[in-house]
Amino acid sequence: MTGPPEIISSSDAVLLDFDGPVCAVFGGLADHQVAAGLRELFEGELPDAVDRSRDPFDVLKYAAATTGGFATVVEHRLRELESRAVEVAPPTPGAVAVLESLSRQAIPVVIVSNNSETAVHAYLQAHGLTNVVADVSARTNADVSELKPQPHLLLRAASFLGVSPERCVMIGDSVTDIEAAQRAGAKCIAYANKPGKREQFEELQPGAIVDQMAELI
């Protein structure tokens, strides 16, 4: 594998995932609490898998697949809860240093996230990071078909910057980030921030894998 800093320096732009590489979105307000808050919007019983899931996106996807326009209500509530969550979300060690390093190198960064655009902007503003991020390409509605692993958000980010996806590198901590990058034709660096992820990522053959954000510098 080529070293992560070399992959970045040979790219025209960085597409950076938010939850994980920048902060732990649900590190303060837990994901299972948010999922429970979304389930309260439903009447009647939910499928066991949805009822037991800790992942708020499982609830949103269920709403989008089965209840038509009600998905908009669920997505709006998720946006509210995400905005509350980022107020207490722990920053990822090394993330600010990476953003500042990219800024010094004049490599533009777009945050590409399945989280709401509102929550991402709120976090960046609260932490004084708006000046080191060129744009945000994140969830703006209840259309889950636009979310990663689909390439839509990455392609939108590349279009905003006026660069080809092939000249971008996606940095993310999930399988869906790698899959979205591959579908968009972008390079990818995987951030293995939890035990077992490195082995999982190796099967997908990203350009590089790091265990700490500081390895990107």
Rank of each mutant, 00 (worst) to 15 (best):
I178Q: 00
S164N: 14
Q105E: 03
P149S: 06
E80Y: 03
Y62K: 03
A65S: 15
E80C: 12
V96M: 01
E43F: 02
L124D: 02
A63L: 08
V144Y: 01
P4D: 12
I209S: 13
D143Q: 07
T67G: 03
G28Y: 02
S113W: 02
F18M: 04
S174F: 01
A119T: 01
S11P: 10
T118Q: 15
F70P: 01
D12N: 11
R104W: 02
V88G: 04
V133N: 00
P149Q: 05
L38V: 07
S10V: 07
F42Y: 05
A181M: 09
E40D: 13
L155W: 04
R156K: 15
L99N: 02
M213D: 04
S174N: 06
T92H: 07
A192G: 12
E215M: 12
L38H: 05
L16H: 02
E75F: 13
E166Q: 14
K194D: 11
E179M: 07
V50L: 09
E166D: 12
A126S: 10
P56A: 12
M213A: 11
Y123D: 00
A214L: 14
S83T: 14
S53L: 13
T67A: 10
S159N: 14
I8H: 11
E203N: 11
D19C: 09
L81A: 12
D177P: 09
T72S: 12
I111C: 00
T2Q: 13
V25F: 06
P56G: 13
K197C: 09
C188W: 04
R84Y: 03
G69F: 00
Y62D: 05
A157W: 04
E203V: 15
V144D: 01
L124C: 02
G68A: 07
E146Q: 14
A106H: 15
D31Q: 12
A63R: 05
S11H: 09
